[in-house]
Amino acid sequence: MHVNAIEVRNVWRIFKSRDGIVEALKDVNLEVRKGELFGLLGPNGAGKTTLIRILTTLLLPTRGEAYVLGYNTAKEEDKIRPLINMVSGGEYSGYGLLTVKENLWMFSQFYGIPSRVAKGRILELAKELKFEDILNKKVRNLSTGQRQKMNIARAFLTDPKVIFLDEPTLGLDVEVAREIRSFVKRWITEKEDRTVVLTTHYMHEAEQLCDRIAIINEGKIIALDTAENLKKRVSSEFSLLLRIAPKIDVSWIKNIEGVLNFISRVEDDGLRLRIIMEREESIGDIVDGFIRRGGKITYLSKEEPTLEDVFLKLTGRGLE
């Protein structure tokens, strides 16, 4: 029988706290096939981590059901747990008094991996992720990047069928982030039945790694496709990047014909704008509009659409 790696059916998650009620997930539906490197792309607070927590059996959905490899995450966590693992970015997980090797070995024991096998795998992973030099270092003395490499190794060490990576490169320098990305890419191609679910708010990461991407915003999946197909949704469009000074009112932009959406960010003593539009003739109107309002344009470029533009077109906001 054909079983999807992941199925999410009408999942809602509502948090009640003193500050009020948050609907973190609103009727989410999706399927991830075995062997896929699947991305969840969305801005802060979109609900990515909440979905990962549900899929990793740490959290129950308020309504709806989720399945990992055919097992219900709310009721059959015992079946799921041996088959999955997870890494979260931007945290400092690990026992500071243990060495890297000890930490990894300990977690392998919670998965019942024979000690000798585990030690072999630790060495292999250390070689692949280039952290052999810190194996005997105490965890509390590690840099952020070293710690994250250890945590990546912790999760892959157990040879999971489905691995969840929640913003795995968050806060890492370019070099380490690239090493981790290429490791993940290699890992999934090594065997057919491996599946990766990755969340990120870096569109390049999603674009570079993922077979398919779900764009999530305010608890809802608003688009789901390959990066290529997603970008086709804006293929007749382009984006215009502008820097202007001083800060002036920009609300008039959306009234210009051909402008689909735009975001502006305050920067130094001016503004940085990203406008997604579909009529090249309208560029003149925009330039004109700024000059008439006393704004100086210090930078202007026209770009091919990216995933960020898909997001911008759909939601009217930026990713980061």
Binding site: T56, M86, Y95, Y111
Partner: peptide, 18 residues
């Protein structure tokens, strides 16, 4: 502090035994 609870929880080991 150690932020390991969730990783132990999602392992096949029983947290009770731990």
């Amino acid at each position: 502090h150690y932020q390991t609870l969730k990783y132990i929880m999602i392992s096949p080991s029983s947290y009770y035994s731990y």
